[in-house]
Structures are given as structure tokens and as C-alpha cells.
């Protein structure tokens, strides 16, 4: 299975990655390589094997429902590009 340049463009757009035409071609080749690998893996017979969602065969440990965090807004906002009146400021996003 190979990927068209258009599809590469769409994937890049979804991931908010800017690609030059040259980048796109190089990416197309790399992604197609990955798809080739997947195709190879899909040839393996997995009948009767339950799919895993995680490489480790363990289950999630849970935390007790209690508040353990304190307010560290000042420290976080000191390293934020811009903050005012307690809010993080970003370029206007409304359409």
C-alpha cells in the first residue's frame, strides 16, 4: 500500500505540521515504508489472540479520590509566553 502526496498533505494538516513540497516527498517515502512494514506484520496469523492496547500486560493502578495538588499558578505562569489576570493568553482562536 502506498500513500499519495495528497494523503500526506492531509495527515500533516491534521497534525499541524508544515511541509515543503520536498519534505512531502521525503515523508511520503518514509510513511510508505512504515505501511510496508505493517503489511508484512498483517501477514502473521493472529487467530485467537486477543488484541493488546498496551505493550505491557499489566492493568492500571488507581489513585484515591483526594486533592493532593496545591495552587502553583504563579510558577506555571512565570514560564508561560503570556499571561494576564490569571489567564494564559493565546492568539485569538474564535472564528
Amino acid at each position: 500500500m502506498s500513500l499519495s502526496l495528497e494523503e500526506v498533505g492531509r495527515i500533516a494538516r491534521l497534525a499541524r505540521i508544515e511541509l515543503t513540497p520536498q519534505d512531502a516527498e521525503a515523508t511520503q517515502a518514509k510513511l510508505s515504508g512504515i505501511f510496508g512494514l505493517i503489511e508484512q506484520m498483517q501477514a502473521v496469523d493472529t487467530t485467537g489472540i486477543a488484541p493488546m492496547s498496551h505493550p505491557q500486560d499489566l492493568v492500571q493502578r488507581l489513585r484515591t479520590d483526594e486533592v493532593t495538588e496545591t495552587n502553583q499558578r504563579e510558577a506555571f505562569q512565570a514560564v508561560a509566553p503570556e499571561a494576564e489576570r490569571g489567564l494564559y493568553l493565546v492568539p485569538k482562536v474564535i472564528e
Binding site: L89, V90, P91, K92, V93, I94
Partner: peptide, 12 residues
């Protein structure tokens, strides 16, 4: 997101 209070910016 708060869009009203800041010129050209949104507050988060």
C-alpha cells in the same frame, strides 16, 4: 476559552 476581554487574544 474567553474571547471577549483581550484585544486580538483569547484568555485560557
Amino acid at each position: 476559552s474567553l474571547h471577549e476581554d483581550f484585544q486580538g487574544q483569547s484568555g485560557i
